[in-house]
Design a protein around this nucleic acid. Sequence first.
DNA 1: AATGAATGAGCCTTCATTCAT
DNA 2: GATGAATGAAGGCTCATTCAT
Lengths: 195, 195, 195, 195
Amino acid sequence: MSSTPIVRTDKKQAILDSALQLFVNKGFNATSTASIAKAAGVATGTLFHHFPTKKDIMSQLFLSIKQEFATNMVSNTQFSGDIEQDANTLWQKAIDWAIAQPLKQLFFLQYSMSADIDADVRKQAMNSILGFVVELINRGKQQQIIADFPNALLLENCHGQYLAAIRFFTDNPHLGDDEIHRSASFKLFWQAMKA
Amino acid sequence: MSSTPIVRTDKKQAILDSALQLFVNKGFNATSTASIAKAAGVATGTLFHHFPTKKDIMSQLFLSIKQEFATNMVSNTQFSGDIEQDANTLWQKAIDWAIAQPLKQLFFLQYSMSADIDADVRKQAMNSILGFVVELINRGKQQQIIADFPNALLLENCHGQYLAAIRFFTDNPHLGDDEIHRSASFKLFWQAMKA
Amino acid sequence: MSSTPIVRTDKKQAILDSALQLFVNKGFNATSTASIAKAAGVATGTLFHHFPTKKDIMSQLFLSIKQEFATNMVSNTQFSGDIEQDANTLWQKAIDWAIAQPLKQLFFLQYSMSADIDADVRKQAMNSILGFVVELINRGKQQQIIADFPNALLLENCHGQYLAAIRFFTDNPHLGDDEIHRSASFKLFWQAMKA
Amino acid sequence: MSSTPIVRTDKKQAILDSALQLFVNKGFNATSTASIAKAAGVATGTLFHHFPTKKDIMSQLFLSIKQEFATNMVSNTQFSGDIEQDANTLWQKAIDWAIAQPLKQLFFLQYSMSADIDADVRKQAMNSILGFVVELINRGKQQQIIADFPNALLLENCHGQYLAAIRFFTDNPHLGDDEIHRSASFKLFWQAMKA
DNA sequence: AATGAATGAGCCTTCATTCAT
DNA sequence: GATGAATGAAGGCTCATTCAT
């Protein structure tokens, strides 16, 4: 009789979508659960039916966005075997993703190290992403193309440089398509990493 | 009646000190003005006598710490004229400062890009610090020692790498004295910057 | 399709059972309808299918327990005609019942005069029980064995002493089989009542 | 300049007074903290300034009323040394108090064994009151005037009979001055206790 | 009859801020 | 300057109840 059997999930997603927008534009604490519900076209009770806690919205949002990012990075990526070239491919893809998803990118910038997200959630997210980066680094080290520094330091540096790059392109949106800046941003990164 | 006109500052400073500790350990929003006052051994009213607003505590704290950092960086620093060597001196000094002031360092990490601090305050702070960095960069570019990338990108990158470095040393405190890691952290940075 | 038309009662009874346990252990207000349903292995909707209101669960529970108690008191009881002996028989039976049904006894203790039960329900329950007590009292008065005090006062006193007795045996479960305490509890009661 | 330096306490007391009235008339759970504050002519925040929790209002109320009752019982009481006469004096005094303070009496009736009051608070209150009763019982036992039953049982019975008596006089207010009923209520009690 | 997602009024509590002393 | 009681708006969350399936 009904043609919309899966509609349920819609509401949960609508809540996440509204939360993303509000968290980015007003901040986590300045966003009331009521406003999230309202923006999602849902009752307050519904929100708490799907998420036990306001913090849980944040956690799930954080995790799902990181996951989406990671998935995007890996899928449809042709690895040439040349470390630098592959690194460049990934880097540009990451920048592309950030530019295509301004909201999610701003979310990264604001919450990647905010106290509004529990440390363990952040750690969990890191692991799910960094898999492919670690792999690349290890491969690069074996071929003596990437500097032989401690992995933890390299990873932190990658993350820091990536955030810096997208912050730059966020502050200067018109440069997103500019080849000079884009290649410069990769070069900065790569110079740091290479042996 | 009173012969100690400067004692005043004591309370104001006590409030800032307590705020720093609480903001770092519990977050800005999870810290009530009442708890700050209590930790400072002061009445709530007194707190609002010195700071019109809770946000003002944050702003003054942010500004004063950034200022302190900037002052520390410049004072007693002998510039050799050799860009790389000077950069290294500054970098190590910055790391030293961060390690010596764990609370302030964590404050940096958490609030350097948080929404809890007004954008203009952040901008203002940036300028007060980055002065000497800009200068160094410009000098390096003239001598063609530093890569000829847009300054905004370079600055953002510096900042990002610095935060990554102190995050690494925060997560691994025992490596703060380890020469290998410290020099590695600079090399990563410098490789990125150099022409 | 179904050949078990009586299975229905199962769920209704399961709800009442769970409600009894939860009301006693957590209190009426601290028990959510959701928790009752869950404990009964039933959906929320089902609960409200059987009971229009949360209060109705309480009322039906109260009534059915009181009824069960009254039925137990009267059934299989041999009246000797000797008032004191009969009173003792009933008293001991009441204590036995309370000890055998700790949950229901605690329910009595907590809700016999709670505001969580509508006054008229309580009154209704009283009548259904007190029938046999009133009868006994009247018989005793005729034979001038029971004191000639107003019935309302005597009834209230009976109830009060009974609650006191089971509270004592609840607080001291190991004395439930102790003849000295059991006979003492009856003597206290009987001394009060007798002419 | 001001002539009302102690006014502070007024608000706390006003809150307790309003709470008493509302708890008795509407029940603990049906009474919102907002309604208590409003009835007390105070802001919500003020209520929580004086009582950390709604439950704390209840606890303090319970304790203070029990205390008041105990104080009233002991003060200005001439003990004749004759146990029965002294018991009667106290019993009548207790009934008088209950009749004079209908609200507090109803509070007793409703909350003496409600789940809305923490068990330990109830225990604490018991101890503070029952002191003089225990003393009387012990004296009576020594003189072999009071039956040699376990104290715990006697105490529970006293309490139960007292509650029954005030419940009776609550339900029949016009009998509060009736000598027949009042003396009957004592006789019931005393017959139970005496050897 | 059974289900459980959805609802939204209402509750307890927090907290930045004020102000009389 | 210092105090802390008082304020009241606002927020996160609960929960009895409904209803489409």
